[in-house]
Design a protein around this nucleic acid. Structure first.
Lengths: 193, 193
DNA sequence: TATAAAAGCTAACAAACGTTAGTTAATTTT
DNA sequence: AAAATTAACTAACGTTTGTTAGCTTTTATA
């Protein structure tokens, strides 16, 4: 993998938009702001993208895809629930730390999608969360997890996972793998029998 | 306490704004949207408030006050660290569940504050988080907590606490007190020796 | 009941918004 | 070298933005 990939203008716009949407929010980022950061005029953006919301769509559904592929791999394995959960956590952390800006947009700016994309997005998200709940249920069936409420447990787990983008720095002390381990320790030990 | 307190227009505007800022975001809520929801014209809002940002300021700093008073009470007690942490969690949950809209705005829309309010706000927030870290440090000194990194631990704790506004329903199964207990179980047991 | 204050209204402001039209310069394909 | 495509530009569009000015109606005070 090359370190400095030459980006097409379209990719460059997406990248800059990810950062600005994250930093200022989708609504508060104007097409003129975006164009200025890219170094062209606002109107010129439209040679590369369909609309402002089109950019948001690409960001949100693009990263949703990443999360989905990650969890699918875990689901298809025939591992015990504890190992599955550890891997799911690890994969989730990896997706976020590899895509900090996009993850932040994914988590907070999706609500500015219009229908029917908004409904599609929510369905994807629900389905992803469902995958985690299934792992907890499996663990209870295996008899290795306590009788926790999987809904409450997953809410807490996701909140911890989905806040990472807010404080993780690639230059920081903890690697993504270490973060995943620490979180597993903190949140998995508490439900093991 | 009376159930249906008669609100002044100013209070009513703040209440409606809290809800709209939470639901659509500060930037995406126009003064005409807000006025319409209140049932008056946009210009009439200015008989009661100074500016759009003034409303945001009142919401953010108002709820910040609530959090501060809650943690101050805990800090001034001479309880052992474990009990302090349990109470701090309980108080935090109480503030959020009592002010769902305002909490959401407090957590996500503060970035639209302009200077010098923005800096003031960040200082308050840091100071509040510091109070939690101190409790963890006290617990380690008392020898009842494991040698966890208080920074990482508090980040995880806050993420769980600060996501509550997103799923808590007053009509739901869990009372605020029960939520606090469950969270304490999940996140406190993991660090006890 | 007269008077002052509070709270509403309409109209308008300048600025910023997303987007389109039409044109030109640079690059790629034939 | 000619033709076609790509990507930039300027100018402008109709709307929406937060806010102010000035006037009128409602409510509270003296």
């Amino acid at each position: 993998m090359q370190l400095t990939k030459k980006l097409t203008r379209k990719e460059q716009i997406k990248k800059v938009a990810q950062n600005m949407f994250r930093e200022r929010g989708y609504s508060a980022t104007s097409m003129r702001d975006l164009a200025n950061a890219v170094g062209i005029e606002a109107a010129s953006l439209y040679n590369h993208i369909k609309s402002k919301e089109d950019i948001l769509r690409q960001i949100c559904f693009g990263i949703a895809d990443d999360f989905f592929h990650a969890i699918e791999q875990v689901e298809q394995s025939n591992l015990p629930a504890e190992e599955k959960l550890k891997q799911a956590i690890s994969q989730h952390v990896k997706v976020i730390t590899n895509n900090l800006d996009a993850s932040a947009v994914f988590l907070h700016e999706w609500r500015f999608l219009s229908e029917p994309y908004l409904s599609d997005f929510k369905k994807l998200r629900d389905s992803y969360e469902q995958s985690f709940k299934k792992i907890i249920i499996q663990g209870k069936e295996e008899g290795i997890f306590k009788a926790v409420d999987e809904k409450f447990y997953c809410l807490t787990l996701f909140s911890a996972l989905n806040w990472i983008y807010d404080w993780y720095k690639p230059t920081g002390l903890l690697s993504p793998q270490q973060i995943a381990e620490q979180l597993s320790n903190l949140l998995l030990e508490g439900i093991k029998k």
